[in-house]
């Protein structure tokens, strides 16, 4: 119970720190959002009115206090670019980002587990070297470059493959939520799901490759280490096959170091959505963030940065809990 309170407290402290930093940085950005909203030749009076409307006529600390008070009521202010509540924009676009992140993480996990288990199970030098080499390559090249490579490859060799957007606007389907992939799955609209996947798979793959490589390296190393332990030899004397031992004995132990690494890498993946969304015109909060910066949409940037920070923190917490759950030695000490 005490632990819970401490973690909640530290979440709020970090978020507060993030919000102060971003608030101060943003007030120093040259170029002001009001000029961008005004039609050419607007009067000073109109400008002053607008500044008052968005609270930009007060001092920076005063602005921060007002902003913080509103945030306490989940009011992140109005976007100057879209003239809509920031909260509404974020809620509208977050699902697209979450789906992309989820899909990418899923791909990364499947690839990493498949390759690590395969390498350790086969125990063949050439296969091990090949998997090490692939992982090294996938990890050295950042997701931004993977995206460009995919875009190039599609243009040259598979022009039918879409490289922009979430779906074809001409064949747009009706969805009750913005979680298109999930919704099409749970409502059994599999052809719609397949069509959506065609759009999602390339950005998700680009995001997932470095993460997949990172997990593979740690998991494979941990599996190899576990397979050298005495309990594996004892399991052999119980007549278990090598695959059964890898899956039944080594994997659980190898999960422990893997969880710790994966959470760190997952935050990189989420940070990566900012660019990947831009590259594939994916309508999530990442691409929205870039356009908000370019248009000096301060309230929107603040809101999105806080959302990212919150997600990062939650992932860290979740991984700590998972870590405890995975390691029985920690579980009983509580």
């Amino acid at each position: 119970m005490a632990r819970l309170l401490v973690t909640i407290g530290s979440i709020f402290l970090t978020l507060l720190g993030v919000s102060v930093v971003i608030f101060v940085i943003l007030r120093l950005v040259p170029g002001d959002p009001i000029s961008m909203m005004l039609p050419p030749g607007a009067t000073d009076e109109v400008r002053a009115n607008l500044e008052r409307l968005y609270g930009l006529d007060k001092s920076i600390p005063a602005q921060y206090v007002i902003w913080l008070r509103n945030v306490a009521w989940l009011d992140f202010g109005m976007s100057t670019q879209f003239r809509l509540p920031v909260m509404e924009i974020i809620l509208d676009r977050l699902p697209a980002t979450l789906e992309l992140v989820l899909l990418a993480s899923l791909i990364a996990l499947v690839l990493a587990f498949a390759f690590s288990i395969l390498a350790v199970w086969l125990q063949v030098d050439s296969a091990t070297l090949a998997i090490d080499g692939l992982a090294g390559l996938a990890q050295a090249i950042p997701d931004f470059l993977w995206a460009l490579i995919f875009i190039l490859a599609v243009t040259l060799f598979a022009p039918m493959m879409p490289i922009s957007g979430r779906f074809d606007p001409r064949t747009a389907q009706d969805f009750a939520t913005n979680f298109y992939l999930l919704e099409s799955l749970v409502t059994f609209r599999f052809d719609a799901f397949a069509e959506l996947m065609r759009y999602a798979v390339l950005p998700a793959l680009a995001l997932s490759l470095p993460l997949a490589a990172g997990i593979t390296r740690v998991l494979k190393g941990a599996l190899e280490e576990a397979m050298a332990q005495d309990y594996v030899m004892l399991a052999q004397t119980k007549g278990k096959s090598r695959l059964a031992i890898v899956l039944g004995e080594a994997l659980r132990n190898a999960m422990i170091p893997t969880i710790a690494l994966t959470s760190v890498q997952l935050t990189f993946l989420i940070g990566g959505t900012v660019l990947i969304e831009r590259q594939f015109s994916w309508p999530g909060i990442g691409s929205t963030a870039i356009s908000a910066v370019i248009n000096r949409d301060l309230p929107l940037i603040q809101g999105i940065v806080l959302v990212f920070a919150l997600i990062f923190i939650l992932i860290n917490l979740a991984s700590n809990e998972l870590y405890r759950a995975a390691d029985p030695r920690l579980r009983t000490e509580r």
Binding site: V18, V21, I290, V293, I301, V305
Partner: peptide, 24 residues
Amino acid sequence: SRIVDVWLSFPPVLLSIILVAMLG
């Protein structure tokens, strides 16, 4: 260490874009 923590809570790409927008 606290500063490093706060630093790591920003998506780095977004932070660099914001900072470059600020510095020119």
